[in-house]
């Protein structure tokens, strides 16, 4: 330290090393780095790295959480390949992701553009954000009630305009779309805000130029806004898709996987096996499978996003 105060004093900020013996400073800097890194490294090792390895190991065991795990080789994976419920759960989850992400992105984009063109009101943005602040559990309960077959507001409304009632959560074909849309409701405002921010970042000269050229709204949207928004959209998709794959809360408080297996998503199935059927080892094997799928999805998306970035320049 003394070297600093004494030495190169008043110098204008020079590239860092010069002022004192490099090795000494390096050592101090490394030591400081270790101290700063220590807690996060501990968290990383204990709650990310170790469980990842352990999860792989547990997937090779027969384990009920009550007695010690027994190594069983690839048994769990052999069962997994022939487990129709597992394959069905993958399919159900995919259906959920497609509906959820598809609708959510379109709606949020529409909302963001509407807000951008119409108003800067914080109140409106605030209201749209409200559902995001409420927990999944509350949101699920509220919609479970509103979509109730007999007493729910929605079916009452459909009755009133002369449509047949729908068992939103009770009908095999409706359950997943219903749950997907419920979560669209929770996330649309949040996603719209992310996109809205992207819109604000677009240089307004571009719009002015387009206006001078006499372009109409539609051409502006497809010709200018959408292409410039691609990187933001890609980021939004990365954030939302991975989360969407892990749909659990809404199902857990409403249908619990039923009717039949219509809403038994992968994570719900993992939970069932691990914590209510005493098949913890098997559940670990399913989660390894989910891990691989998500890794693939993330990888594909990263490539997609890189494509988006190059687009911008």
């Amino acid at each position: 330290m003394a070297t600093i105060t004494g030495g190169a004093a008043a110098a204008t900020p020079v590239p860092r090393p010069a002022a004192h013996p490099p090795s000494n400073r390096r050592r101090r800097e490394t030591r400081a780095a270790l101290v700063f890194l220590a807690p996060a490294a501990l968290g990383f090792l204990v709650f990310f790295a170790w469980p990842t390895l352990r999860g792989l190991y547990l997937s090779l065991t027969d384990y009920d959480l009550l007695t010690a795990p027994e190594f069983s080789g690839l048994d769990n994976y052999r069962t997994l390949i022939h487990d129709d419920v597992f394959w069905n759960s993958l399919w159900v989850t995919l259906e959920y992701v497609v509906i959820n992400i598809g609708v959510q992105t379109v709606v949020a984009l529409a909302l963001a553009v509407l807000m951008h063109r119409l108003t800067q009101s914080t109140v409106i943005r605030g209201v749209l954000l409200l559902p995001y602040l409420i927990s999944n559990v509350v949101v699920a309960l509220v919609w479970y009630w509103m979509a109730d077959f007999n007493l729910g507001l929605i079916n009452q409304g459909m009755d009133w305009i002369g449509l047949d009632r729908i068992g939103f959560f009770g009908d095999e074909n409706w359950a997943i779309p219903t749950i997907a849309l419920v979560n669209v409701w929770r996330h649309m405002g949040y996603t719209a805000l992310l996109i809205f921010a992207g819109l604000q970042a677009i240089n307004r000269d571009v719009y002015e130029a387009a206006a001078v050229d006499g372009a109409n709204e539609r051409r502006i949207f497809f010709g200018i806004t959408l292409p410039l928004l691609r990187p933001v959209l890609a980021l939004v998709l990365i954030i939302t898709v991975i989360g969407s794959w892990q749909i659990f809360d809404t199902v857990a408080v409403t249908t619990k996987g039923g009717p039949v297996d219509a809403t038994r998503t992968v994570q719900v199935y993992i939970y069932d096996q691990a914590f209510t059927r005493f098949n913890f080892g098997y559940a670990s094997a399913i989660s390894v499978a989910l891990f691989l799928i998500l890794a693939f999805v993330a990888f594909a998306q990263l490539r997609l996003m890189r494509a988006g970035e190059s687009d911008q320049s």
Binding site: R26, T30, A33, P51, T52, L58, I270, A274, F280
Partner: peptide
């Protein structure tokens, strides 16, 4: 801060981003 192996360690940290929460939750 600059210290030996920094970028490698950071990369390792980043890989944790790819691990879905449900996978680590069980262990």
């Amino acid at each position: 801060l600059s210290w030996p192996g920094r970028d490698k360690v950071f990369f390792v940290f980043l890989t944790a981003l790819m691990v879905p929460p449900v996978f680590t939750m069980l262990p």
